[in-house]
């Protein structure tokens, strides 16, 4: 076998071995936060001790959702250096819905569709520069969608 080719292969293999555990580490799912049945536990799991109110996060959701199985939520942070946005529904069986982490020029902005078991406060918590900021709005749910 050609020596250069062999070395190339070896290098590629080494890189794969190095890269795989890093990727796996990044992909660790925050089990304690997501499985917590309480808002407090979910926040603790996310490492959030205190989140102050802000006017620089826009949280758009319907005031009244016909079907709790599909509630469209749009959230945008205008706080500089936003790293992450978490979505939580206070009265869901497990309040933490999602945690979005942005990097490499992504806008701190997402639209997604969530389940709501009943009428509840919907919260977005933004992490920026090591601090946490929160906005909240009430969504009335006509038909619960958590099953």
């Amino acid at each position: 076998m050609n020596r250069r080719l062999w070395l190339k292969g070896l290098a590629a293999f080494g890189l794969a071995v190095l890269v795989t555990p890093l990727r796996a580490l990044a992909a660790v799912w925050n089990k304690p936060a997501f499985e917590s049945a309480q808002m407090d536990g979910a926040l603790r799991g996310l490492g959030i001790v205190q989140a102050g109110p802000t006017r620089d996060v826009v949280l758009i959701a319907p005031d009244m959702a016909e079907n709790g199985a599909i509630v469209q939520v749009e959230v945008e942070s205008r706080i500089p250096n936003t790293e992450a946005i978490a979505l939580l529904v206070e009265k869901n069986p497990t309040p933490l819905i999602a945690n979005f982490m942005f990097s490499n020029g992504a806008d701190p902005y997402v639209i997604t569709r969530i389940k709501m078991a009943e009428t509840s406060e919907l919260k977005a918590i933004v992490k920026a520069g090591g601090q946490y900021y929160t906005v909240s709005r009430k969504v009335e749910v006509a038909l619960g969608g958590c099953g």
Binding site: I70, L96, S103, V110, T112, R113, K115
Partner: peptide, 13 residues
């Protein structure tokens, strides 16, 4: 990577 999202069971079908 530009976005990494962790999801629970509360994201719709």
């Amino acid at each position: 990577p530009v976005l990494e999202a962790q999801w629970g069971t509360g994201i719709s079908k």
